[in-house]
Design a protein around this nucleic acid. Structure first.
Length: 511
RNA sequence: GCGGGUGUAGCUCAGUGGUAGAGCCCCUGCCUUCCAAGCAGGCGGCGUGGGUUCGAUUCCCAUCACCCGCUCCA
């Protein structure tokens, strides 16, 4: 499948750059791995996606409220959530055998043998062993040393034992890893905690460490009590948030898909424990349908339930909404049944009561939660992939982005057919009128066909052209992006016509 | 992190150990009545840092970025 698909992704990346959707971050300085910028068209597209999400999931519902939390929070939030402890062991890789070790379980046994090398220095062997204590780790190096002793003589003294973590940088190259006979194949210890660290305040020490949030969800949990106390909300209800998150990914890949800075659209939907299963089923379906309604209609979209081994220990059910990207099938959104895990964790760590009092049933409980967690950048990339098409028009290939009108960066472009006979003035007047209602674009440069094609690449659903017939009868030409069909609309009805079309009204049959 | 590939104009790509090219785009003017027209002119570049050399965009080393495969992915 490689070739065709690679080609398609290359073309999309190229189009995104050429038309101003997505640029590499800080490109004039050589870029920075895992970070991307949205250009003039990209920012409109992504905003439209986020706004559609907010409108559909918050403003159009009675049971949802919004929230916008700080990115940096009290570090104890991440202790409670498990992000600090969960994945912070420094790891060491063996470049020779590809083995991976926990650095705190590696001990180096430095042996000195009586034999001398050509410089007259005694032979040394720095042998690494693996174990939870030096005694446990000694076994393997001892065997190796015994072997070497046959050639080099019995060691002159017991080995010096050095925890790998405390090894001098200069000595690291001497070390022979547990699974190899080569020297210097072990990497430096690397922390695999994916949270970005920073310092708050003037002092840069342990007590001032803080983290850039790796997800927006925890900000919702820690504000649960605030919202309940002030928001006049009743179970079941959800809290939604859109915002940046940061993960120091080991290996960013696939254009914007796995970025180190990215934007999430998350809902925590709180409900009574006995209703959680039903709400999980509800959101699982509703969130899938949302993508379909916005244009991911093809069989590239799928809903996959996690099997038992895949589930987090606190979750009873999780489903991924996946999209078949050119580089593979990958996750757009996860819908997780998280029970009362997060609220309980924060109750333990903060010492605050985060339970909810049900007025009707006169009962105090810790709500369960269903979490639909979506990636705004991943959604944007999926919509770009889905929209990308190469059509044949009049024997020529055209590139077109067939966005759903709701997410299209520009809703319509207005052109004078030629730059004279007062056509520019008329077209500009229409443009100014439309601009009050929609994001529209005016262009009078070059040949009309070129202007159409340029809008096709931007994904603009409609073009409106002022021509000589306009001067005679006050009508303009509407042109549909996907079919290239054209029809006439009275100038007075342009705003309403465009609104109807953007809201899904079918285009007139081609005369 | 490992292996492979790529890096020349805004974009797509040629090319050379000796003053760097094309097409498209863009800008200006002329011309143009519906799907990337034509003419004339213009802007603009060898990813970065070292080394070899009289001279490096070219050869060597390092580094960065991107792509592919593996690995990783709370």
């Amino acid at each position: 499948m490689g070739l065709m698909m690679d080609l398609e992704m290359d073309k999309l990346v190229s189009l995104c750059k050429r038309r101003g959707f997505i640029f590499p971050s800080s490109e004039i300085y050589g870029g920075i791995n895992g970070f991307w910028d949205y250009g003039p068209l990209g920012v409109e597209l992504k905003r439209n996606i986020k706004e559609a999400w907010w409108r559909d999931n918050v403003q159009m519902r009675d049971d949802m409220v919004g929230l916008d939390c700080s990115i940096i929070m009290n570090p104890r939030v991440w202790e409670a959530s498990g992000h600090v402890g969960g994945f912070s062991d420094p790891m060491v890789d063996c470049k020779d055998t590809k083995e991976r070790y926990r650095a705190d379980q590696l001990y180096v046994f430095a042996y000195v043998f009586p034999a001398v090398n050509h410089k007259g220095e005694p032979a040394e062997a720095w042998l690494a062993g693996l174990g939870s204590s030096p005694g446990e780790a000694a076994e393997h190096p001892e065997k190796k040393a015994a072997k070497l002793a046959k050639k080099l003589g019995q060691p002159t003294a017991p080995p010096t034992i050095i925890p790998y973590m405390q090894l001098d940088l200069a000595d690291r190259d001497k070390v022979i890893g547990p699974s190899t006979d080569e020297r210097g194949t072990l990497t430096e210890p690397r922390s695999f905690n994916l949270m970005f660290k920073t310092f708050v305040g003037a002092l840069e020490n342990e007590s001032s460490i803080a983290y850039l949030r790796p997800e927006t969800a925890q900000g919702i949990f820690v504000n649960f009590k605030n919202v309940v106390d002030t928001g006049r909300v009743k179970l079941p209800f959800g809290i939604a948030q859109v915002g940046k998150s940061f993960r120091n990914e080991i290996n960013p890949r696939n254009f914007t898909f796995r970025s180190r800075e990215f934007e999430q659209m998350e809902i925590e939907y709180f409900c009574r424990p006995e209703e959680a299963k039903d709400w999980y089923a509800y959101w699982r379906k509703a969130r899938f349908q949302w993508y379909v309604d916005l244009g991911l209609r093809s069989d590239r979209l799928r809903l996959r339930d996690h099997d038992a081994e895949e589930l987090a220990f606190y979750s009873t059910a999780t489903a991924d909404i996946e999209f078949a990207f050119p580089f593979g099938i990958s996750e757009l959104e996860g819908i997780a049944h998280r029970a009362d895990y997060d609220l309980t964790q924060h109750m333990k760590h903060s010492g605050k009561d985060l339970s909810y009092f049900d007025e009707e049933l006169k009962e105090r409980l810790v709500p369960h939660v269903v979490e639909p967690s979506a990636g705004a950048d991943r959604a944007t990339l999926a919509f770009l992939c889905e929209a990308y098409a190469e059509d044949q028009v009049g024997g020529e290939t055209r590139t077109v982005l067939k966005f759903h009108p709701r997410i299209a960066p520009i809703k319509a472009a207005i052109f004078p057919l030629v730059k004279r006979d007062s056509m520019p003035e008329k077209a500009e007047a229409i443009y100014r009128d439309l601009r009050r209602h929609f994001n529209v674009f005016y262009d009078e440069k070059g040949a009309i066909g070129r202007r159409y094609r340029r809008q096709d690449e931007a994904g603009t659903p409609f073009c409106i052209t002022v021509d000589s017939q306009t001067l005679a009868e006050d009508t303009v030409t509407f042109r549909d992006r996907d079919s290239c069909w054209q029809w006439r609309v009275p100038i007075a009805g342009v705003v309403q016509s465009l609104r109807d079309l953007l809201e899904g009204q079918a285009i007139p049959a081609n005369p």
